[in-house]
Design a protein around this nucleic acid. Structure first.
Lengths: 170, 170, 170, 170
DNA sequence: TTTT
DNA sequence: TTTT
């Protein structure tokens, strides 16, 4: 059908670190779990109430998987633009299940980090010290990798799709 | 949480007439099934391929339920703005199920009919027959006279929420 | 700056045929003038009132210029996604002027024709029959009438940016 | 015209404190100047380049003027949803001028603060002098310091338009 | 599971 | 004029 639009826009926080899966063909897929919340005052009780919605986000776009993996962490606030997709699958007992996800793939997808200062505990003055930018985000002690997001814009890659292999996207 | 956004924008066609349910309290809920499609040329085979996604839309907003009930029919093309919501329920065997829906409720929802059949000069039959509305898409063989919807905009009600009881919304 | 979004979404009708300009480098730019309207009932007089807003749209994206040129005509209804841009220029008397436009350029732009059956004169029954519907395109040879685009989707090109040179985009 | 949509979505930072004007009728209008920026790597020089776009935003919605006045300051990051409007006016020399603005008015407008600076415990310096930052809320009495707004959501008022006069909006 |  |  011509003439259709399928767009989701979310601004919310990650409930967990991104889950990265490697594909057979060398590519990657990143899954995010994003919370959006609303709060309102109950008309009857006058109490303040709040409801959180959890969104499953799946990133296929190459540039965006990299950004997600490099800069997003549990708690990060992001702007996301993708499309709705419902997937059918079978659980272990053979039952049909359906999952609706927000898919970032191809053009008209976007992912922008909105909290340049993660869970900075210390001083955040200056923003622009030696390394030039966000440091934040959970280089949380322990082993391994360690985070250190810096300049999180997923727009850039889209302008030069092939330009990220040998360069930082900013 | 402050600072979150949960928005879905769809432009697509109804796969069926709207399903209207009356609530105990006198209100109504309308369910729509909307298709969006994408087509692309397969890089390998060169064939044109197409994929259709079906969206379950639930309308609670009073003004919009009325518009949906009055002006939408199978085949209608609509612009919809709502938010994502996942609902948990039990099927007859007691199994947990989840359904993700696009909910139109409260402010920041929108529903606009896009196939006003603009400058219909000729026959409009089929649109307004017995059932009083668009049935979609030109099987316009048969009889039925008929009027047909005319000015289908769900914006108006939003500007004066109580103003529709005694007036056509356009 | 990281972390910003600049997005405009319009659904409206062309006030004129697209204006196509050829660039020195062989490229093209297409300008559209798009009307959106709102109507509401005046709270005081009870009269129905309407206000039309005109939007200047500028298309740089190669795939979309082609779609615009080929399928859009005065009166066409389109879905457009672009970004706001204000341009400074001097009028003939040297006065500074500013124009704000909706620019379609690069990723995250979209243009989708919403009235697939423009001024179809012939039968369009069925959607699925032999030719299955929209055939459209460019019979704009000679004089007179012109136009009548029908199967207008600018999504396709985006999926295979180079794929349109030798093929109809649907 | 039925069937049109006019929507602008911005995520950006305020270049200045909000400008509040009182209307004859007791209402208020708030003007914001919001920057969005893009950066990309120049294909030729390889340099990183950046372009900032400034948007004039005008808030008429009662609930949103209050939120803007209370919680926004120079530097604040906001999510904004409004519509495009071009206004004609005469400058002092009688010349016609046009200004295009993003108007927040009525339903389908939104304003959400994105840098809650949450539970700033420490220093907030840098944000604009004197008192540094959001003071927000209910110029609650007397003195000094000021606390740092925290829960800035413009959604709430929309759910209960009249509910803010005697309560904090969150 | 996030955030406020 | 912001932000990085």
């Amino acid at each position: 059908m011509a003439g259709s639009v399928n767009k989701v826009i979310l601004v919310g926080n990650l409930g967990n670190d991104p889950e990265v899966r490697n594909l057979p063909n060398g590519g990657k897929v990143v899954n995010l779990s994003i919370a959006t919340s609303e709060s309102w005052k109950d008309r009857n009780t006058g109490e303040r109430r709040e409801k959180t919605e959890w969104h499953r986000v799946v990133i296929f776009s190459e540039g965006l998987t990299r950004v997600a993996e490099s800069y997003l962490r549990k708690g990060s606030k992001v702007y996301i633009e993708g499309q709705l997709q419902t997937r059918k699958w079978q659980d272990q007992s053979g039952q049909d299940k359906y999952s609706t996800e927000v898919v970032l793939q191809g053009f008209n997808s976007n992912l922008t980090l909105l909290d340049g200062r993660g869970d900075n505990s210390g001083d955040n003055s200056g923003y622009g010290g030696g390394d030039g930018g966000f440091r934040g985000v959970r280089d949380n002690g322990g082993g391994g990798g360690g985070g250190g997001a810096r300049r999180p814009s997923a727009n850039a890659p889209a302008f030069e799709p092939g330009g990220m292999d040998d360069d930082i996207p900013f």
